[in-house]
Design a protein around this nucleic acid. Sequence first.
RNA 1: GGACCUGUAGCCUAGCCUGGAUAAGGCGACAGCCUUCUAUCCAUUUUUGGAAGAGAGCUGUAGACCGGGGGUUCGAAUCCCCUCAGGUCCGCCA
Length: 564
Amino acid sequence: MDKYEKEVLDLLKKELKKEVSLSRPPDSAMGDYAFPCFVLAKDMKKAPNVIAEELAGKLKVSGNIERIESKGPYLNFFMKKGSVASDALKKIFKDGAEFGRVSGKKKVVIEYPGPNTNKPLHLGHVRNMALGYSMSRILSAAGNNVITVNINNDRGIHICKSMLAYKKWGKNDSPEKSKMKSDFFVGKYYVKFAEELKKNPDLENEALEMLEKWEQGDKEVVALWKKMNKWAFDGFKKTYKTFDVKFEKEYFESETYKKGKDIVMDGLKKGIFEKDEDGAVVADLEKEGFGKKVLLRANGTTVYVTQDLFLAKQKFDDFKYDKSIYVVATEQNYHFKVLFTLLKKLNFPFADKCHHFAYGMVNLTTGKMKSREGTVVDADNLVDEMVAIAKEETKKRHKDISEKELDKRAKQIAMAAIRFYLLKSDSIKDILFDPKESISFEGETGPYVQYVHARCCSVLKKAKLEVDAKVDFELLKEKQEQELVSMLNEFPSVVANSAKNYKPSLITRYLLDLCQSFNNFYHCFPVIQDDKKLEKARLLLVDCVRSVVENGLDLLGIEAPRTM
RNA sequence: GGACCUGUAGCCUAGCCUGGAUAAGGCGACAGCCUUCUAUCCAUUUUUGGAAGAGAGCUGUAGACCGGGGGUUCGAAUCCCCUCAGGUCCGCCA
C-alpha cells in the first residue's frame, strides 16, 4: 500500500469509524482510488449510490487528495497529479537499478533444471531454466538471499540405455571424431537404443544387467559411465553458459541414491511407516488420497522418493533455508505432494518450507516431445535458429552494421524472444511452442519490450539537455503521462506480488502494459521540442520508463539494449 | 477406478488466490493515422494509386452471454457443489 492509498483510507476511517478497503477504478479518468459503498448499505439502511453521494459531500479534501466524486455506488478519489508524479519520478530517478528492490535476509534455495545425463537439454529444460532463472532474480529483488542448486540425475536405467547403445554400436567413436557437441553425441545413442529395442526387446534386460553391474562397481561399466557422463556434462556447461545459468552447489544422484534409508528406518521405528507382507517399507497415505507408497524395496534398496527425502534434509543441513523451491514440471505434482506429506509425517522442521514450483509441458505444433523418438527441439538448436532469424531481421534494418555488432544484437534479441515467450503465460499451463509465432518480432514479445528501451535511450541521447529531477512536475498533465506515472509507481508492488505468488508472468504482463502505454505517449507527444521546461519534464519521464523497463527485463534475465 | 490441473472472441493469452463499474491484451481481419520514397503533373497545390516503414510506431471497428448447470451474495470469470471436455499422474522406474 502506498502513502496515497493510506491517506484515502485514513480519511474514510475517520468518517466511517471502521476499516474499509479500496479498489481501482476501471479507467484512470474515473479516479485513482475507488470505494465501493455496497458494504455500508446494510448497516446504514440506505442505497449505496445515496451513501456515495452523501460521503462525497461530507468528506473534506486535504493533503494530496485533489477531489472526491461519487459515481453511482462508487466514491472516487483523485490525487494531486503533480505530487504523485513528483514523488514517483524523483524516487525512480534516485534509486535507478534499485527501484523495485527491497532488502531482507530470508534464505531461499531454488533447485533447477535437474537434467538427465543421457541426452541434451531440450525445450522443456529451456522453459525450466527461463522460469528458474527469472524466479531467482525476482525472489532476490523481493529481499531474499537466493541460492541456486542443481540435482543431476546421472544414474539409473535410462543412463544405461545410452551407455549400452554406445557400447554396442559406438565403435569407439567420440564427440571430437564425429565433430558433435558432446551431449548431443550421448543423446544420439539414447535414440539409437529406442530404435534397436523395437527390433530386439531383449535389450531392456541387457540394460538392466548393466545397471546392476554399475551398482556393483564393475570397472568397465563405471569407466564407460564416467566417460559418457563427462560428455554430457561438458555439453550442458555450454548450454548453461548460453542461458547464463550458474549453481552454488550441485548434487549428484549417483552419490545420494543409496541414502535416505536411515530416515525411512527411523520412521519405521517410530511407527510412522510400516512393513508390508513382502518386507518392503511403505507409507500409508490412503487418508491423504495418495494410496500406499513404497519407500524401501523388499531387498532394502531405496526408491526415487526416498532419495528426495534425503536430499531435502541435505539441502536444509547445507543451507538452513527459509524456503526451498523445486522447479519441476507438473508431471511430478503427485511425487511432490507425497514427498512433502512424508516430510511432514516425519516431523521435519522444514516440511512446510518446501514448495513445488510446477510448470506445464511445452508441446510442439507437431505433437508431444519425445526424446526417445527424436521429436524434440534441443535447446542449442533452438537458440541457433533464433539467432539466425534475428540476424536476418537486424541486417534488413541496418545495412552497414559490423559483423561483431550484428552478432551481439542478434544474440540479445534471440534470447529475449525465447525467454519472454516462455515466461509470459502462467507457468502452470501447458503451452504450445509454435516456432513461427515465437520468432515473430511483433506483438507481445521480448523484442517489443527491448525496442521500447532502445527507443528511450535514443530519445535521451538525441536530447541536448541533461536529465535531472529538478523539473516542474505540474507540466506532466496529459492523460497519457499520468497513466505512465501511475504505472511506474506500481512496479515495486508488481515485483512483490510476483515473488509472493511465484509468477514471473506478472512481470512480463506489466512490462507489456507499460511499453504499450509508453508507445502511446511517445506517439502522441513530442519529447524534444522548443518548450525546454516541458522537454525536461518529459525527458525525466522517459528516463524513468527506461529505468523501470531495464529493471523489469533484468528480473526476466533479459538484457536491455541501448540500440537495436 | 482414484487424484490433481486446465477450459475466457477464429487463434494465443491476462484477470481467478484477495468477488465490485463497460471482461483486458496480442495474432489474424477490416478501416484509418503519421513519416519517407516512388508513379501520375511543365511547376505548385490537391487528389488518387503503389512500395517501404520512424531503430521492430499508433488509433479505431468487428469479434466472448468467461465450457454447461445449480448455489452463496446487494453483486460471480473470480467462492461452493454438480457436470462435460482436454491434459497429467497414480511403478518395489527416475
